[in-house]
């Protein structure tokens, strides 16, 4: 197992490891958040430390809507990386004017469609090397 720790593909989410830790803390609370520039009010996705539009370094955390729609998708049936089960529905979803890359959970691959409504669900993944829980922003069909 120590070997696979060395090729851990998941984000480092704790406050000791990333300045985006507030985002991951939000996921643990069931909230989908991102950063908004306090200089020009633009909201970014994904969250970031400074605004690439106006250059201001002040950002604040804001909630994104929990509902979105499928912008595009594909079902990967084979050739997934080790540890990721098939089939897997990869999707771009539109949420609050942002495009978010994600996976659709509990979705029938044959019934996924562009424009389909989806809702945010935090996805628990392997804990980090110190045993801290980790989360990703996933979505699932609303209906």
């Amino acid at each position: 197992m120590s070997y696979f720790r060395a090729v851990d593909p998941f984000p480092l989410e704790s406050p000791e490891q990333t300045r985006l830790a507030a985002f991951y803390a939000g996921l643990a609370d069931g909230r989908l958040t991102t950063t908004r520039c306090t200089g020009c009010d633009r909201t970014a996705w994904p969250p970031r430390l400074f605004c690439p539009e106006c250059g201001a370094d002040g950002v604040e955390w804001v909630d994104l809507p929990r509902e979105g729609t499928v912008h595009g998708f594909t079902v990967q049936e084979t050739g997934l990386p080790a540890g990721f089960p098939a089939p897997r529905v990869f999707a771009i979803v539109t949420v609050g004017g942002h495009r978010i890359f994600t996976v659709l959970l509990d979705a029938d691959p044959a019934r996924v469609a562009v424009g389909q409504p989806v809702r945010f669900v935090p996805l628990a993944i392997d804990p980090d090397s110190k045993g801290n829980p980790r989360w990703l922003p996933a979505f699932t069909p609303s209906a």
């Binding site: 595009g72 594909t74 990967q76 050739g79 990869f90 771009i92 996976v103």
Partner: peptide, 15 residues
């Protein structure tokens, strides 16, 4: 934001 979900090249080009 991508590889953590299991993304590699095929789904990108499939989109």
């Amino acid at each position: 934001w991508e590889a953590a979900f299991g993304l590699t090249a095929p789904p990108c080009f499939a989109l």
